[in-house]
Amino acid sequence: MAEAKPYDLTEPVATPKTRALLARRLADIVGLPSSRITPRERWIVGDLLYDVIRASDLELRRRCAERLAPLSEAPHRLLRTLASDDFEVAQPILERCTALTDFDMMEIINSGTLQHRMTIARREALSETVAAALAAYGEPPVVERLLRNKTAHLAAPTLDHLVGAATEESSYAALLIRREEMRPAQAFRLFWSCEHIDRFQILDRFAVDRTILLEASEDIFPAAAGEGWSDPMVARILRYIDRRQRNREAAESSPFGSLEGVCEAMETEGATSDIIAEISRLAAVERRLVVRMIDDMAGEPLSVLCKATGLKWPFFLHMWRGLGRSGQSDQVEQARRVYDSLSVEKAQTVLRYWNLSAEDKG
Results as ranks from 00 to 15, higher is better:
A2Q: 07
K5T: 05
V13H: 11
V13P: 15
A14L: 09
T15S: 15
R19A: 09
L21V: 10
L21N: 06
R25H: 14
D28G: 03
V30M: 00
S35W: 08
R36N: 06
T38A: 01
D47M: 02
Y50V: 01
Y50I: 02
A55S: 06
S56T: 05
L58K: 11
L71F: 00
A74I: 00
A74G: 03
P75K: 05
P75L: 04
L82D: 00
F87T: 03
A90M: 03
Q91G: 11
P92C: 09
I93A: 02
L100G: 00
D104N: 09
M105W: 11
I108M: 00
S111H: 14
T113G: 03
M118Q: 10
R122H: 11
R123K: 11
R123Q: 06
L126Q: 08
A132M: 07
A133P: 01
A135Q: 04
E139K: 04
E139A: 06
V142E: 09
K150M: 12
T151N: 03
T151F: 11
A152M: 12
A155Q: 05
T158V: 09
D160P: 02
T167C: 10
T167N: 14
S171E: 15
A173K: 05
L175C: 02
L176N: 03
L176H: 08
I177E: 08
R179V: 07
R179A: 13
E180W: 05
R183T: 15
A185M: 12
Q186H: 11
A187S: 11
W192A: 09
S193V: 02
C194D: 03
E195N: 07
D198S: 15
F206N: 04
D209Q: 08
R210F: 07
T211G: 04
I212M: 15
I212V: 12
L213W: 07
G226C: 03
E227R: 09
E227I: 08
G228W: 06
D231W: 10
D231I: 13
R236E: 07
I237Y: 14
R239D: 15
Y240W: 15
R244H: 10
Q245G: 13
A250P: 01
E252Y: 15
E252I: 12
P255T: 02
C263W: 08
E269T: 14
D274R: 11
D274N: 04
I275K: 10
A277L: 05
A277K: 15
R281L: 14
V285H: 08
E286F: 04
R288C: 10
R288H: 10
L289Q: 13
V290G: 07
R292S: 10
M293K: 06
D295E: 12
G299L: 10
G299K: 13
E300L: 01
S303M: 08
S303G: 07
K307R: 15
A308F: 07
A308L: 06
L311K: 07
W313Y: 12
W313N: 04
H318Y: 13
R321Y: 03
R321Q: 11
G327N: 13
G327H: 03
Q328P: 02
Q328V: 09
Y339Q: 04
S343I: 10
E345H: 13
V350I: 01
Y353K: 00
N355L: 14
K361A: 15
G362Y: 03
